[in-house]
């Protein structure tokens, strides 16, 4: 990435440099996805983005196989009859080399799922997401505590497994995690989780 190609809020590639239609070189793989997301935010298409899901968890835990990149997005007041209108975002991504495939948009070879906020927990997670550097590219990622809380809330087997990994590796601050659970009405879920997996108490 050359100098002078950085966006307002983070390092981003210049518009067009990552477009498949331009034929110019752009980063491949997840770094390529991150570059496009940074550019999209710098261009003001979305208010804020942060990576979650398995790719987000990889910033804290061992890598686990995943098929897509979950990206939480604060959309820019694009409302149509009370619903978020994601078209400007999709139009932008398509113009920058993306390809719609079912519920995903494929960027740099990775299916990306854009997830709007579903409530106060995700709002808070997005607001408190932290910026990290990967190969000289900035990326915003949800905190481990928020990833763990969202996993608890989502509650599928793979989410429980992720939460167990966070606890087992001692990667998250358990006090902060419980604080987030309490704030968002998830303490009962957490207590049920502790009963289901009593070993979490010996790990934490």
């Amino acid at each position: 990435m050359g100098k002078g190609m950085r966006g307002r809020r983070g390092k981003a590639t210049r518009p067009g440099t990552h477009s498949e239609t331009t034929g110019l070189k752009r980063p491949a793989g997840i770094i390529g996805v991150i570059a496009v997301l940074n550019q999209m935010e710098a261009d003001g298409i979305v208010d804020r983005y942060a990576i979650g899901g398995a790719v987000g968890a990889t910033f804290y835990l061992e890598p686990v196989a995943t098929q897509d990149v979950d990206v939480f997005v604060a959309f820019k007041g694009q409302m149509t009859q009370g619903l978020i209108d994601p078209r400007p975002v999709f139009d932008y991504l398509i113009a920058h080399g993306g390809r719609v495939e079912g519920k995903h948009i494929v960027i740099a070879g990775w299916p990306v799922q854009l997830l709007p906020s579903t409530g106060p927990l995700v709002d808070e997670a997005l607001a408190e997401a932290i910026t990290m550097d990967v190969a000289d590219v900035s990326v915003r990622v949800l905190t481990g505590e928020h990833l763990a809380t969202i996993a608890l809330d989502t509650g599928r087997i793979k989410d429980h497994l992720r939460l167990l990994q966070f606890i087992e590796t001692g990667t998250i601050n358990m006090e902060r995690f419980e604080q987030i659970c309490r704030k968002h009405g998830l303490l009962d879920k957490w207590r049920a989780f502790e009963r289901k997996y009593p070993e979490v108490n010996s790990e934490s």
Binding site: I30, V55, T58, F59, P63, A65, A135
Partner: peptide, 11 residues
């Protein structure tokens, strides 16, 4: 993290 993302791609 760079290495972990490469592993992720391979997985």
């Amino acid at each position: 993290i760079e290495e972990k993302l490469i592993i992720l791609e391979r997985l």
